[in-house]
């Protein structure tokens, strides 16, 4: 298993995306700009709400897309991570007609593709919060 990029997310029981905070303005962005000393990496809240969404119904052009040749439509959302930033990412484990603006989702790490060495490449996605509690 290998992450699609370094410094993009933390793994474990409750994965988090890693943003970057600008030292002077305090503005938080995602991802943390690589090699830019003005930004300090900062884990983002793991849960948020859907700000907007769409379904990718056609296979994006390759390059740059590295997903499966046998394309299946997938959901994409902007998710508002409270007090932090609105982040774009795929949604998994949800029926397309169940997606609504404002629904609660959480960050997960999922397999994206298999690389030339046969390793599973992982990336982040958002999935509906299933637990009854809003607490971590």
């Amino acid at each position: 298993m290998i992450a699609i990029a370094e410094g993009l997310f933390t793994e474990g029981a409750q994965p988090r995306l890693i943003g970057g905070r600008h030292g002077e303005t305090g503005r938080l962005v995602f991802p943390c700009p690589a090699g830019d000393p003005r930004y300090t990496p900062e884990p983002l809240p793991p849960r948020g709400t859907v700000w907007s969404w769409t379904i990718q119904r056609f296979r994006p052009k390759s390059p740059p897309y590295t997903g499966p040749e046998a394309f299946q439509p997938f959901a994409i959302a902007y998710v508002e991570l409270p007090g932090a930033v609105i982040v774009e990412g795929p949604m998994v484990n949800i029926a397309f007609d169940a997606i609504e603006i404002g629904m609660e989702v959480e960050t997960v790490i999922v397999p994206h593709a298999t690389d030339a060495q046969g390793r599973t490449v992982t990336s982040y996605a958002f999935t509906p919060v299933t637990g009854s509690s809003g607490h971590d």
Partner: peptide, 18 residues
């Protein structure tokens, strides 16, 4: 970064839709 395109988000029509 390259990963942004690799996961399938380098698509203008997604932006218009969202």
């Amino acid at each position: 970064p390259d990963w942004y395109g690799e996961v399938g988000m380098m698509v203008t029509t997604q932006f218009f839709a969202m």
